[in-house]
Design a binder for these strands. Structure first.
Lengths: 222, 222
DNA sequence: CCAAAAGTGTTAGGAGTACACCCATGG
DNA sequence: CCATGGGTGTACTCCTAACACTTTTGG
């Protein structure tokens, strides 16, 4: 009656103006040397969430992420070794926290752009597709987008996040008006010098303000 | 490394103008004689979805339902017998298909109104709360509401489903205009005689038409 | 002074919401 | 003819979407 249970975490970040996902190269069969979503077997004394975070840390060195359960995959033939149930998670991290640490199991962890993915092991292609759908949906009615940015960011950067995930361009004026109308950004007396042109104002995400808006429904109707 | 995996299915219906959920009385410890969400251990040779359907049939006689995976619960102390992961589902059925069959394990299955629930075993109260949130959300951007009605239904009946789930009254004129604008109903040359007053027109849910609208986002912004 | 990105306002159309009366039926 | 629930139209507001020019900076 017992079943082997694994977790797998689809972790996204924005790099080079594009959505990327973190993959690991498998060192053992089955699917040896193929790319897979980081994860592994759940231990006796840890919850599913804890497993997901531990595996992510061990295999890629990544920690301090936004984590959310995605879906559980339990078809009979998804693992050639036999019956395995995988609880999939999706996670978001900002570029500045997304560095892979050497000295972990992360010898073969690598960020891949979503539009140039390798063949994936198991049914991980399905899991990844599902994670992308979920991310796009959540972007429209939550503030998960901010998880992909450092604590201080500019409005053009925020817009880039939305455009990279949704895969289409947004009107700059409408985007700014919408975000500002939510009242969840605190403007700082600081300007980014990242672009070599006119500096853009920096903002904070004022999460506390947002809590009051939560149950009003859709927040980002792009 | 193996873990006991159960499924549990929160199944809703509309009865007496109110949202009801199907519960079963436990016959064995732990939580003997307390009420629980129907479910049980997954078998080796069935997928998670299949387990959910089988347990529902065995314990309550209910079949032919709309079924959707909800969330997996994996905290360490949620079952006094030890580590158990539960994959929760939520299901919808119309009143006319929702009769409990005798001769099954359903000796102690019973529909409870959501506003008058008994104490629940395990963390099933949490699971039920989560299912209700999900149902309310899905009602707004999908057509799951139709799953709670027989194949032929009137607009007042449909409105009742929405009101029972959302817990508030909706404007009759706006509701009808909205539903009709979606073009997913086929009016029939038949009228319901359920009410003892003026008969209401019967409609079909024209699912095919709906497929084209799916990716346009929110459909039921009540 | 030129190129490039930041930043700003207005308008038209569609959707949501609020609201009141007539119609068909059974008793 | 009356009580009950079925059925319809209109006006206002707000949100969305489309659209172009000015400002700031580095080179």
């Amino acid at each position: 009656m017992s079943i082997r249970v694994t977790v797998a975490t689809v972790i996204f970040t924005i790099r080079d103006r594009a959505l990327h996902v973190l993959l690991v190269k498998r060192g053992v069969p089955p699917f040896q040397d193929e790319w897979a979503i980081p994860g592994g077997f759940t231990k006796e004394n840890e919850s599913l969430d804890e497993s997901a975070l531990r595996e992510l840390r061990e295999e890629t060195g990544v920690k301090d992420v936004y984590l959310e359960q995605l879906y559980s995959f339990g078809d009979l033939r998804r693992d050639p070794r036999g019956r395995v149930v995988t609880v999939a998670y999706f996670a978001l991290i900002s570029q500045d926290r997304a560095t892979l640490e050497p000295g972990t199991d992360a010898v073969e962890a690598q960020w891949y752009p979503m539009n140039d993915l390798p063949q994936l092991a198991f049914d991980h292609g399905d899991i990844l597709s599902y994670a992308l759908v979920r991310l796009r949906n959540k972007l429209e009615y939550t503030t998960v987008g901010f998880q992909l940015l450092p604590s201080r960011f500019t409005l053009p950067e925020l817009q880039l996040v939305y455009e990279a995930i949704l895969g289409r361009n947004l009107d700059k004026r409408n985007f700014r008006r919408k975000i500002e109308s939510l009242g969840i950004l605190r403007p700082l007396n600081a300007w980014s010098k990242e672009s070599q042109r006119r500096p853009a104002r920096l903002y904070n995400f004022a999460a506390a303000k947002f809590e009051k808006l939560k149950d009003k429904g859709i927040l980002f109707p792009f």
